[in-house]
Design a protein around this nucleic acid. Structure first.
Lengths: 206, 206, 206, 206
DNA sequence: TATGAATGAGGTTTCATTCAT
DNA sequence: CATGAATGAAACCTCATTCAT
């Protein structure tokens, strides 16, 4: 967003809003949505509760804004990775690595995202929920189109590129989840070639 | 557990406990842990709050019992699927199908399981959390040993069977997740061959 | 009470009642009336809640029975001490010592007695409260009559014997209270002569 | 505490805190700690439960604050009485009278203090309990030092002043307790000379 | 009569939200 | 606008008492 042209007052407000979101991200990802009180967020952000409510009409909406902003940032970075130029498999390698980077740099956040987004009784309005799913879907579609290109270029075998993309997504998640259980065993990056190898060559003897 | 030899009083109590667990499963999976009150569970189970507390020492422990019992049942069925006799790839096919059956038969439950288990500030004691992870890990190991056998039998190519198992797990989850978004598009079973195909042959052109 | 002539059934019942009272005494004096549940008493006495309610119509009445029985026992022993034969001052010495013995042998019980008896919102019906006060009053009167005899015998100076008795009571209690704070400093008995000395000679220079 | 220099907001809060303490004192001393609910206190103070909890972190702590503030006020007044100038016996007379005044002006409060402070399972943290005992002890020591001075001035006979002080304390309490039983019989003040007479001259014939 | 499972009112405490200052 | 004190509904849990067996 272009903030340069705004009057000072408005710029200040945006900055304050961001500070509150930052505090909220920290707290939510440390303790989970339900275990953080509005008072706590306000205190951490060094604002009054009233101020907080002048930016967000409810705790729920604050949470949604937060999820949305994080989702959009991640989405942008992952989309960029998928739109890089180069051989399809190289692009996918980059994507797999970027997924890892985002994940490992923001474990807590990502956990929050995973758990609360898919949770039942999640405090998100369905509009936001859908928006998040839409972003996710868009990403899978983009990956599919990379794969499709790979097929056209003869690098990948025939097959439904969307299915392939879904599978890739799953493999990445599974390895990320593994890493999450024992982060100290080895850095996630070590898995990047493994993931690609399995994804590309499959399990069967040729 | 053998309930036949028990005195009637005790049998009744077990039945009542189960009734409460049933009500809790329904409610939790409809609305999520935090959005269900103890009163509500009691009402749905047609017991008093006090009765509920005579079976479970807290809402948290009730939830844990519930998760554990579901996890153990699922685990048993999946383990059985993996221990069936036959060619490695046929066993895996059976496993993929069974995963689907469990998932689609208990969507809400599974959603609950997914969301709350991994959630931060999850209300589960780490003991239960660990137990669940242990069961999961055991399953992956069992799948890995099936794959290992496949390698020995010349059906699968060389490679770390554990990694393969993790990848398979991921692919299954990804397709299940897809199905969850649009259950009406096609039955999950239609995906079983797709999953196996991708898992076995990979994406690369030969 | 004479229990010998009773039918076996009734004797048994009395024994059970006593067992429950014993358990209740222990628990109440360990944790205070409000912090002991009926379930707990029943468990400690190895009876069912129902059985307990067949003996006492409520927790409150159970408590009253207990207080009454203890009060009566103490009263009997103290009265006996005051009715012993001998010089008035020797009798009082015996009484002071007996008070100490009862107190130090049943500290917890006595604490309970002290605190809950005089407490506001005490769970005792006024009838029982009055009964306890009556017993106390009787004791003071008895002490007063000993003192009166002492006056007649020329051992004590003229003055209202009732007031004297009240004062003696107060001095005893004060020293008991002191002892309660630091029981290990010295045995209560060491104070018996001190109490009598102060009571008899007063503080003023002659 | 100097409240004059404070910002208005803070002054208001202190006032509100005091209002709640007042309501709590009334209720506790009418019905006893356990028989008063937080809701009730809030209602009587014309605040919400939440407001109450913004001042005191729990019912228990509220109770402690209350006990402490009353204990300190009483302590201050009694200490002042003991530190007045004049003959030792006159000072003690003043003290005995002041004890009576405090007691009879706050019967309910004092009852509360007596009963709950010494009670088992009393809801007071040991820190507060100790503080109260400390104040009490300090008072006895102060009385002892007055008596000691009396001894030096030749007004009181030789003897352990601390024991004398304890005894005086006991006599006062006993007469207060008597008065409590039948307040209407005679005003407590009538007992002041009696108490001093017994305390100073003792019971024995000279 | 004895049992102990079941009841449910009532207790303490939290926290999203409002609003006078 | 910002503040933060105040609100009060609703949560979890306890326990004296009842009653079917």
């Amino acid at each position: 967003m272009n903030t340069e042209k705004m009057p000072r007052r408005e710029r200040e407000r945006l900055r304050h809003r961001a500070l509150i979101l930052d505090a909220a991200i920290e707290l939510f990802s440390e303790k989970g949505y339900q275990n953080v009180s509005v008072q706590e967020i306000a205190r951490r952000a060094e604002f009054s509760v009233g101020a907080l409510y002048s930016f967000f009409e409810s705790k729920e909406r604050l949470y949604e804004s937060l999820v949305l902003s994080v989702a959009e940032e991640h989405h942008a970075r992952l989309l960029a990775a998928l739109r890089r130029e180069g051989e399809a498999s190289a692009v996918l390698r980059g994507y797999v690595a970027e997924r890892g980077r985002l994940f490992t740099d923001n474990i807590k956040l990502v956990r929050l995202y995973f758990s609360e987004t898919r949770a039942l009784g999640s405090p998100m309005q369905s509009a936001v929920c859908e928006k998040v799913h839409e972003l996710y879907h868009e990403l899978v579609l983009e990956a599919a189109s990379v794969i499709e290109r790979g097929v056209r270029e003869g690098a990948f075998r025939e097959g439904d590129p969307y299915h392939m993309a879904v599978a890739l997504e799953g493999i990445i998640n599974a390895f990320l989840f593994c890493w999450l259980q024992e982060p100290e065993r080895q850095p996630y990056e070590a898995n990047v070639p493994v993931i690609l190898d399995i994804f590309l060559r499959g399990a069967a003897a040729r």
